[in-house]
Simulated scan of single mutants.
Amino acid sequence: MNVWQAARSESTGSPLPRILFFNVNGSGMGHLNRCLSYARRLRDRARPVFFSLASAVELIEEMGFEADYFVSPYWSTSSTFAWNSELAVRFGMMLESVRPDVIVFDGTWPFQGFLATCETFGSPALVWSNRGLLKEGGKTVTVDESRFDLVIQPGELGAQASETPLEGGGKRAVVPPVCVLDDDELLDRAAARQALNLPQEGRFVLFALGPGNLKDVAGIGHGLIRVFEAAGFKVVWVRAPISVRDIELPDGVMPLTVYPLARYLRAFDAFVGAAGYNTCCELVQAGVPALLVPNDQLADDQVRRAHKVADVMPAVVSACETDDERSAAVGKLLDMLNGNGAKRVGIPMNGAVLAAEKILALAAGRERMQ
């Protein structure tokens, strides 16, 4: 049953509030991951429905949520005006079908077609989930936050929960890091290796350098593979669900496609990857020593985020552009694996729970007004 059939078959008198998540399609899985993080904490207390610009809609459905897909502007051949016009029609149909109590948008900036449709529909409670830590001096688009009842800022590592008022009567809420899984859902080393059909003995390193949609990671990846293999590691390479092209892997490297990756991280002795928001939060949650290779072609400041990880757990930060940089970085990581500099600092990681409670409270407030 697709989202349209489900919406038609469900009585409009359902006791559960309806939360419509609109996630954009980014260079990675961050927008979709955060919406799923919130939706999972709302299960059985609300009816989460997704309108996704990310092509990995099957991941939403595998987690038990209804979803509909609309092509991202980055993959559309339409002009900006035409795409926003098409979005307004399709999203309007979604609103008519679902009739949500709350709409949650996760993206860098809200599309005009989205905002216009919300206004035309009568605007149920509106939430903007907007991750921060942008590069200084980067391109920004001014957004009138007074249009939102709630702006959620998923915090970086070490962020504490806080609230400040917005013009128009809404609130801005900073929450601690947002993770899709709870701590007790992460598999331990033995169980994770069994689930992935990896031998219990031996040293394994997991590579997750990103989908390669904006940055060619093949050269860095192949260079690091050689260094780790020379140190006696077996290499496993994550193929991102939204990747538009697969990197050709050397013989002996095992490809892996799983979601959510966090569930299986403890199967590995070490991790190599970019410093995206999801990755860094999940690494700290799982506690797997890491070599972080920030992607400098994105709007968010991955260098700063990587160093935040290194402040609270064993992690090395390096661009790994040359053979010398790669050898030095792997050498530092191996020292950490041998017990040198293995610091760990406990920090709050319950941002998804707090955000879900705030979304649910908005829905309850809207029901009281009706």
Score class of each variant (00 low, 15 high):
330 V>E: 08
84 N>Q: 15
237 W>K: 04
264 Y>A: 00
121 F>M: 11
66 E>D: 12
269 D>T: 11
187 L>A: 01
338 N>Q: 15
163 E>D: 10
74 Y>M: 13
294 P>G: 12
283 L>C: 04
77 T>M: 13
266 R>E: 01
29 M>K: 06
62 E>Q: 15
160 Q>G: 09
262 A>Y: 00
220 I>K: 08
89 V>I: 13
103 I>F: 01
329 A>I: 00
66 E>L: 12
253 V>R: 00
18 R>K: 15
18 R>V: 12
30 G>P: 08
364 A>V: 05
162 S>I: 06
2 N>A: 07
159 A>H: 10
189 R>H: 09
98 V>G: 02
245 R>D: 00
55 S>V: 08
93 M>A: 10
146 S>W: 10
82 A>K: 08
273 G>C: 10
191 A>M: 13
172 R>D: 02
46 A>D: 05
314 P>S: 15
77 T>N: 14
35 C>G: 02
177 P>G: 04
124 P>K: 03
100 P>L: 01
127 V>K: 07
154 P>F: 14
70 F>H: 14
234 K>G: 05
213 N>T: 06
318 S>R: 03
45 R>E: 15
276 G>T: 01
273 G>H: 06
167 E>T: 13
208 A>W: 00
77 T>C: 13
163 E>W: 02
181 L>T: 06
278 N>V: 13
68 D>H: 09
50 F>L: 06
294 P>N: 10
281 C>P: 01
268 F>L: 14
325 E>I: 10
30 G>M: 02
219 G>C: 05
96 E>L: 12
189 R>G: 09
278 N>C: 12
116 A>K: 14
180 V>N: 02
153 Q>P: 03
167 E>I: 10
169 G>W: 01
48 P>F: 11
185 E>C: 13
209 L>V: 08
127 V>T: 00
202 G>R: 05
173 A>L: 13
52 S>N: 10
148 F>D: 02
290 A>D: 03
183 D>E: 15
43 R>F: 03
241 P>F: 15
165 P>C: 06
313 M>A: 14
338 N>H: 11
320 C>P: 07
352 A>D: 11
20 L>Y: 06
145 E>V: 14
299 A>F: 07
201 E>R: 12
190 A>T: 14
50 F>W: 05
244 V>L: 15
7 A>G: 14
3 V>F: 04
130 N>V: 00
1 M>T: 14
246 D>I: 10
229 E>H: 08
261 L>H: 06
190 A>V: 14
208 A>E: 02
224 L>S: 09
191 A>H: 13
370 Q>T: 07
291 L>H: 13
66 E>G: 08
161 A>P: 04
108 T>F: 14
57 V>A: 11
92 G>Y: 03
270 A>I: 01
218 A>G: 01
91 F>C: 04
231 A>P: 08
